[in-house]
Design a protein around this nucleic acid. Structure first.
Lengths: 331, 331
DNA sequence: CGCGACTCTGGTACCGATACCATCGCCGGG
DNA sequence: CCCGGCGATGGTATCGGTACCAGAGTCGCG
């Protein structure tokens, strides 16, 4: 068994209280006893049990829970870095869990986080159903959403300008003369999915162009499905001369499909990625600072941790997007 | 304050013990009281305090700690997925922390994990100094290393065939007629760094070629530094006709440098990545199943959790590598 | 020299849940 | 009819720390 505080106390011939105080840096411990305690700690390899401490002190596990939909997406790695940036400053650790874009699993995960009494939760919801993310049902653990505004619950959120970014990139395709533009999207049940679609439609309408449903596919869960969907669009008679892809998975899929079709279709997509400027076809991407999203989300959730009464603010922070044009002149 | 078990007991007019038993699915609770308890739980929004439970039961936080060097590297996202695959099966959660390739921070993180009494730790060490990763100094929390064998401590490890993969890829460059081959590596103080360099040297020597130090750079912490190092190699008189890059960061850096030098230098690198087949220059990569590394590491650490006596096995599992040739014919 | 004030230390109870043992009521067999 | 046995329930101590309060010792000042 691991040594306990009492073991240290016995070894140092003091009371457990003196040990506790020493480890809490309480100034009211005589230097001599203090050093005896520290020597005992070293000799026994003692380590304070944080679970017990948490229980007594009545809170603060110093853990921040993060529920995301898909770790494999590099967007989330950046988000994680941003959250860690801020958590570190406060001596907090970050617990990750992957919902796999499944709301049931998401519910299970946040329940588990609440039972563990994590100090706060940052969630990227898998769908528009958010009842299970209400702090009221989660032992009052503060919740902040990322990439999606809350639906029928009252929490803060950090958002992207999904509509604006898509609108701008689609408009750029239109400005270059494209009149038939395909769309590879995300499920309409997600905020991101509906907003990006809305941006696409608005840009077309602003230019007096009609949305053609035969050029629209909205549910590709992985790259292979995106390739297939893009092929289906490009194989039609009188195919579009450009495609907008609503996230990195779809952009990659579309890229592969376009390349295998001769590479003459223009492509724009949401989410920047590492190699966007090294590809062998031109590309427009909607870029944003994913790390900043994490940082802001962590700040917001820590604000609620410090000041539990401030729950019902429901703030929204919108992170701007920037359209980047990679000409990628075939060398 | 959150409701406690006593509150539930009062509400349901039973003793706390009956509530505890009900929530533990103990069969010896009469159906009628059982349903009264469940009703009270629902009415009060009660949630069992896992910290208290852990304290009493004396262990099992059901948390697995993962210390990695750099979350932004997609390799770790796959590793994380593999770990989660296995952890999930056992109802465990995963706590992540980023050491930033800093051994002091790594020490601090594992100490913190031990103090929290996590059930196990999986670490990708930042350097060859492993004393702080010895379970003996960590409240006997089982430790498994990934991507590096233990140095002077006695723990299991999941390894990559760093030497073999590098040897094979370098040999492929030689087989294609290259005689001067540059090397962009990792710090010699890391296992991965020294093994991959060893593989490079061995392949050259097996072909009767000499290692030329002027073509070797071994410490690029990020892509920008890798670009610079690659430029420095390529700008020399009589430059190499091929380069081997020891990880994805260096491969990307080398790729950018080669491209800006006209794209005539051949390139091979360790780590596959998403767009390797979509670039506009040919490329050879050493590929492996990163997710499998995580899965195996989780299995090993769970083995020790189940059977704490089996500590001193010091098993090694080696995950094979596969060389992939992306011709990337400029379309 | 006496007394309050201040410093340091230890005893005790308690955070929330559960292991252990005692108790109570009920049943059937002798 | 009495007693052993069993199923259901509750009381109590405990896990490892820490808040709170009490007590011992020291010092300075009137």
């Amino acid at each position: 068994m691991n040594p306990t505080m009492r073991d240290v106390a016995d070894y140092a011939r003091v009371s457990p209280m003196t040990v506790s105080r020493t480890l809490r840096d309480d100034p009211s411990v005589a230097p001599e006893k203090r050093s005896r305690v520290l020597a005992a700690v070293a000799a026994l390899g003692y380590r304070r049990n944080e679970a017990a401490r948490t229980l007594r002190v009545g809170g603060s596990t110093k853990l921040l829970g993060v529920v995301i939909t898909n770790i494999a997406n590099p967007f989330y790695a950046q988000l994680a870095l941003g959250i860690e940036d801020h958590a570190d400053k406060r001596g907090m650790r970050v617990v990750f869990a992957n919902s796999g874009e499944n709301t049931d699993r998401e519910r299970q995960l946040v329940q588990d986080f609440a039972a563990r009494r994590l100090d706060g939760i940052i969630a990227v919801p898998a769908a528009n159903q958010h009842d299970h993310l209400d702090p009221a049902g989660l032992a009052a653990v503060p919740v902040v959403l990322a990439a999606s505004p809350p639906h029928r619950i009252n929490v803060d959120a950090v958002l992207l300008d999904d509509f604006g970014g898509t609108y701008e990139a689609t408009s750029m395709l239109i400005a270059r003369g494209h009149r038939n533009i395909g769309f590879l999207g995300l499920p309409a049940a997600t905020w991101t999915g509906s907003e990006r679609y809305r941006g696409y439609v608005a840009a077309l309408e602003a230019a007096g162009l009609a949305v053609q449903d035969r050029f629209v596919r909205r549910n590709q869960p992985h790259v292979a499905a995106a390739v297939e969907a893009a092929n289906a669009i490009l194989d039609q008679p009188d195919p579009p001369t450009a495609v907008f892809a609503a996230n990195n998975r779809n952009t990659i899929g579309a890229y592969r499909a376009i390349r295998s079709h001769g590479g003459t279709t223009a492509l724009a997509g949401f989410d920047d990625f590492d190699f966007a400027d090294l590809l062998d076809l031109p590309l427009i991407v909607v870029s944003y600072d994913a790390r900043e999203i994490g940082r802001v989300a962590a700040e917001l959730v820590c604000g609620h941790i410090d000041n539990p009464s401030s729950s019902p603010l429901a703030r929204r922070v919108v992170i701007p997007t920037k359209v980047i044009d990679y000409p990628n002149a075939a060398s």
